[in-house]
Simulated scan of single mutants.
Amino acid sequence: MRRNEKVEATLTAEEKEILQHLCDEAGCTEAELIRSVLISRSISLDELETGKKIEHEKNKALHNCKRKHAPKKSGECGEAIAENA
Rank of each mutant, 00 (worst) to 15 (best):
E49P: 01
E55D: 15
A82T: 01
E83D: 15
I54D: 03
I34S: 00
E30S: 01
N4K: 11
S44M: 01
C28E: 01
T12R: 04
E76L: 10
E57T: 04
D46S: 09
V37N: 02
I54V: 15
T50W: 05
K72D: 14
L19N: 08
E14D: 09
E49V: 14
H56V: 06
T12V: 05
E32W: 00
K58M: 15
A80N: 06
N64Q: 12
K52M: 09
A80Y: 04
T29I: 02
I39C: 02
E83G: 12
A82F: 07
L22H: 04
E83V: 12
K66D: 11
H56S: 11
P71Y: 09
I43P: 02
E55H: 09
E25G: 03
R3H: 08
A82S: 07
E57N: 08
A26T: 03
R67L: 15
K68C: 03
K66H: 11
I18Q: 09
K53D: 08
E47Q: 06
R41W: 03
E17Y: 05
A9R: 12
E57A: 12
T50H: 11
M1T: 13
V37I: 09
E76D: 07
R35M: 02
I81G: 04
C65Q: 15
G51Y: 04
C28P: 01
E79Q: 07
S42L: 08
E5V: 15
T50Y: 07
H63C: 08
E14C: 02
I43K: 05
M1Y: 10
E14H: 07
S36C: 00
K73Q: 03
A70C: 13
H56T: 09
K53N: 09
G27W: 00
E14M: 05
L33K: 00
N59S: 07
K73M: 04
N64M: 11
Q20G: 06
K60M: 12
L38R: 06
E8T: 15
R41F: 00
C28K: 00
K6Q: 06
K53W: 05
V37F: 05
N59H: 11
C28Q: 01
E76H: 06
G27P: 01
H56D: 12
A13Y: 08
K58T: 08
S44Y: 02
T50Q: 11
D24T: 10
N64E: 14
E79R: 14
S42N: 07
S44F: 01
L33V: 00
C77L: 12
D24V: 04
E57K: 12
E49K: 10
E14I: 06
I34T: 01
E15C: 05
D46C: 03
A82W: 11
S36P: 01
